[in-house]
């Protein structure tokens, strides 16, 4: 880690007597150069880690971008160029993990989590208590009928006395 940082720091500082800032290789024609930059955005810089080789100012990142340029000039496909870097650094070299194999789980996990959340909400909404029915207003017929409850009948009888 310290070594990588020292490399980045030294490359960024470009101090006299230390590492020189290399000139970038000549760009290709506009269409192929655009492809080089697009591919570079998808590849991680080996010395600066969180930045793509297209965005990093580090000299080593420019060397990696030169490699992409060389492979594009050789007519390699995007997949062949990704494979070149993955062969050296593993899928760590890709700014976005592949949507296959174990990393497919990374892509599916949020969807799965959302599905579980929706299921929980749906399940809870099914169990919600029904809206309370409005209290029945006892009508005159109801008050005349003999109450079924013995206690209520006794209260009514007491009131009538």
């Amino acid at each position: 880690m310290l070594l990588a940082l020292s490399l980045v720091a030294s490359l960024a500082l470009g101090q006299e007597g230390y590492t020189p800032q290399r000139p970038v290789a000549d760009p290709l024609d506009a269409a192929r150069e655009a492809r080089v930059q697009a591919l570079g955005k998808q590849l991680r810089c080996a010395v600066c880690q969180g930045v793509s080789i297209a965005d990093s100012p580090a000299s080593m990142a420019r060397a990696q971008l030169d490699k992409v340029r060389e492979l594009v000039a050789e007519g390699k496909s995007d997949q062949e160029i990704f494979d070149y870097f993955v062969e050296r650094y593993g899928e760590w070299a890709l700014m976005e993990p592949k949507k296959s194999g174990v990393t497919l789980g990374l892509w599916l996990f949020p969807v799965l989590l959302l599905a579980v959340g929706l299921w929980v909400i749906w399940n809870q909404s099914k169990k919600a208590p029904p809206a309370a029915a409005p209290a029945a207003t006892p009508g005159p017929a109801a008050s005349d009928a003999p109450p079924a409850d013995d206690y209520l009948a006794k209260v009514r009888a007491d009131l009538e006395k």
Binding site: L3, S6, L7, R22, V47, M60, A63, D66, K67, Y89
Partner: peptide
């Protein structure tokens, strides 16, 4: 290795 091409080929990520 003037353009670091060998270093890139070998997957170098720091020094030494």
């Amino acid at each position: 290795d003037p353009k670091s091409t060998v270093a890139v080929d070998y997957g170098v990520s720091g020094v030494p």
